[in-house]
Simulated scan of single mutants.
Amino acid sequence: MFKTVVEAALSKAIHFADRHERRIALAGAIWFVISIAAWMPQIPIPKVPYVTDRDSWIASAVWNTAWWAILHPMLDRRRTEMRAAQPDNDLSSQSDALD
């Protein structure tokens, strides 16, 4: 039962990440750039918790590392597995149309 619950949750998370892949990557990059820019005294950035805190660049670096090194490759593998599991109807319908 636990395995099916975990698999269902993982499947939902993968579908969410698949739909919002670019937004997740863009948000992580923006968070990292803003947290680094907050350290520059020449750029007046308002204080926002977890975005411009003293150690926010560490949290954003950890998030980007987790996304690009672990989660994104898992998403690509899962996407490849899901495509391989689907029947290849496009090629058969194209060959029937040519005959």
Rank of each mutant, 00 (worst) to 15 (best):
M1I: 06
M1R: 09
F2L: 13
F2T: 04
K3L: 07
K3A: 10
T4D: 14
V5N: 13
V6R: 09
V6Y: 10
E7Q: 10
A8I: 01
A9F: 12
L10C: 07
L10P: 00
S11H: 14
K12V: 10
A13V: 10
A13H: 12
A13F: 13
A13S: 15
I14D: 13
I14A: 14
I14H: 09
H15A: 15
F16W: 11
A17C: 11
D18M: 01
D18R: 06
R19T: 11
R19L: 09
H20G: 04
H20Q: 08
E21F: 06
I24K: 00
A25Q: 05
A25C: 04
A25P: 02
L26S: 02
L26K: 02
A27H: 07
G28S: 03
G28F: 03
V33G: 08
I34T: 11
I34L: 12
I34P: 03
I36L: 15
A37G: 07
A37T: 05
A37K: 10
A37S: 12
A37F: 11
M40W: 13
M40C: 15
P41C: 06
I43V: 09
I45T: 03
I45C: 03
I45M: 05
P46W: 08
P46I: 06
V48D: 02
V48F: 10
V48L: 11
V51W: 09
T52Y: 02
D55A: 07
D55T: 04
D55G: 14
S56K: 04
S56Y: 01
W57S: 00
W57I: 04
I58L: 14
I58D: 00
S60P: 02
S60K: 00
W63C: 02
W63M: 05
W63H: 08
W63N: 06
N64F: 04
T65G: 15
T65C: 08
A66G: 12
W67S: 00
W67H: 04
W68C: 07
A69I: 06
L71Y: 06
L71M: 09
L71G: 08
P73Y: 07
P73C: 00
M74V: 07
L75D: 05
D76A: 08
D76G: 08
R77V: 08
T80L: 12
E81P: 02
R83K: 11
R83T: 06
A85I: 01
A85Y: 03
A85W: 01
A85V: 00
Q86C: 03
P87Y: 03
P87F: 00
D88F: 13
D90G: 05
D90T: 09
D90A: 14
L91C: 05
S92R: 15
S93A: 11
S93C: 04
Q94Y: 14
D96V: 05
A97E: 14
A97L: 12
A97T: 12
L98E: 14
